Simulated scan of single mutants.
Amino acid sequence: MEKKVLGYYGEQAALAYVRQEKGYHVRCCNYRNRLGEIDIIADDGHTLVFIEVKTRMTEAYGLPCEAVEQRKRRQITRVASAYLAQFDLWERPCRFDVIEVWPENGGQPAGRHIVHAFLAERR
């Protein structure tokens, strides 16, 4: 599966999961600014959740969540800070989650939701 197609597949699976299984209110997908991108931004009750989705065909190179290394965490933190500033949401509690997705043979994706996957990172 092509990398872009695999990423889109994973993001759609994660989106369906947070909406249908978790009951989150999705604010936006693929939020971008000059600092980078966040895959999904959603409300879990009063908590604002910034979600990074990682999709892999195999675990040959490690778990998908392992790709969210320090540089990526810092980038997500900067983008999230800009989002909070843009919409004046500084008073909202926030967290950073990672959703791992693996395509399954039967057509249904398998996944794992890591709540509070990391804390905001600064330089």
Rank of each mutant, 00 (worst) to 15 (best):
V5Y: 06
V5I: 13
G7T: 03
Q12N: 09
Q12R: 13
Q12G: 00
A14S: 14
A14E: 04
A14H: 02
L15H: 06
L15F: 15
L15G: 06
A16W: 12
Y17G: 01
V18W: 03
V18P: 00
R19V: 09
Q20S: 04
E21N: 09
E21T: 13
E21Y: 09
K22Q: 14
K22I: 15
K22H: 05
K22F: 08
K22C: 15
K22S: 09
K22M: 15
G23P: 00
G23S: 01
G23Y: 04
Y24I: 07
Y24H: 11
H25P: 00
H25L: 13
V26D: 06
V26W: 05
R27L: 15
R27Q: 09
R27T: 10
C29E: 08
C29H: 07
N30Q: 13
N30M: 06
Y31I: 03
R32V: 15
N33L: 10
R34A: 13
R34H: 08
R34K: 12
R34S: 12
E37M: 07
I38R: 02
I38W: 01
D39W: 06
D39M: 06
I40C: 03
I40E: 00
I40S: 00
I40F: 07
I41Y: 02
I41E: 02
I41C: 01
A42K: 03
D44N: 13
D44F: 06
H46G: 00
L48M: 12
V49K: 03
V49S: 00
F50C: 01
I51Q: 00
I51T: 08
E52Q: 11
E52I: 04
V53W: 02
V53S: 08
V53Y: 07
K54I: 08
T55L: 08
R56Q: 12
R56K: 14
M57C: 05
M57Q: 11
E59C: 03
E59R: 11
E59T: 11
A60W: 10
A60K: 12
Y61C: 05
Y61W: 11
G62F: 12
L63H: 04
L63E: 13
C65Y: 13
C65K: 12
E66A: 10
E66R: 07
V68G: 05
V68L: 05
E69N: 11
E69V: 06
E69F: 15
Q70L: 15
Q70I: 13
Q70E: 12
R71Q: 10
R71T: 15
K72P: 00
R74C: 11
R74H: 11
R74F: 14
Q75V: 03
I76H: 00
I76N: 02
T77A: 12
T77S: 15
R78C: 14
V79M: 04
V79P: 00
V79F: 05
A80I: 07
A80E: 04
A80Q: 02
S81F: 12
A82R: 10
A82C: 07
A82S: 09
Y83I: 09
Y83R: 06
L84Q: 03
L84P: 02
L84G: 01
L84H: 05
A85N: 10
Q86T: 13
Q86H: 11
Q86F: 10
Q86C: 05
Q86R: 15
F87R: 10
F87Q: 05
D88T: 14
D88H: 14
L89T: 03
W90A: 14
E91S: 14
R92V: 12
R92W: 11
R92G: 02
P93Q: 05
C94I: 15
C94A: 10
F96M: 03
F96W: 06
D97L: 05
D97H: 04
